[in-house]
Amino acid sequence: MARTRVTRPASRRVSPRISRRISRRAAADVCLLVVAAAFCLPLAWVVLSSVDPRADLTVKAPDGLTLGNFEAILTADVTFRPLLNSLLLCGGGTALAVVCAVLAAYPLSRFQSRLNRPFLLTILFATGLPITAVMVPVYALFVQVDLIDTPQGTVLFFAASQLPFAIWLMKNFMDGVPKELEEAAWTDGASTWQSLLRIVLPLMGPGVAVVTVFSFVTMWGNFFVPFMLLLTPDRMPASVSINEFFGNRGMVAYGQLAAFSVVYSTPVILLYVLIARRLGGGFALGGAVKG
């Protein structure tokens, strides 16, 4: 803008151009705000209803503030056990997926082999497969090998279903760590394991964090996998137990449902904020997905 001012001192020419830029910005702002408001309505409903003693299905200012909804749901049966189940299932699945992905990414990133490319293409192909479609055969298979309704079975399947994407991301992050550092360590007599643990992993901390958080968030929100593979209500994670509010209790307590949704969603939102900040804006995942 400064340059415009210098090259065109005649003020009558400058002002329309600047004002057009300003009005374009204002138009963009207005459009975005309209979309934001539309996207916000359902979110506003859940937040407002959770503190509303007489919540229904419409967004409205609460009839007085109450924490009664939260008090009603913060019990072992309704909230703590399902959340603990979620934590164990998703934590276990994530840990397994991340460890396997780090191990697998290392040779793929560091050693030349004719098999790397076909392997990576297969992995990338697998990231695209609709996991929903394999759940019926997985169920049938799990019944036969007695893994149905067991937490370990669900953890193993969670890990496997997340693994293709985790390996792909991890390999890309590992490619970003310069090989020279490791070569120096090798000449000093470090083994492969030592260089992976002491040199590569510490340097790709943000990458590991992204894969970990992304896997965990995906599993935390997953409904269909535990819905199919677990049967006992006591073993259900929050994503499935939340249905109790709906189907089986006859009348729906919307305030409590909203309060539970808030409690159940908060951890993943916080986790997302954590990695988004660490990576400077939320665009890193989009970029990583692009390959």
Partner: peptide, 21 residues
Amino acid sequence: LTGGIVITAWVLPEVVAGFLL
């Protein structure tokens, strides 16, 4: 602001999103 709201809708667990909608 807009980015935050749109991304929140994305990060929410699937079932919660279902209830909200």
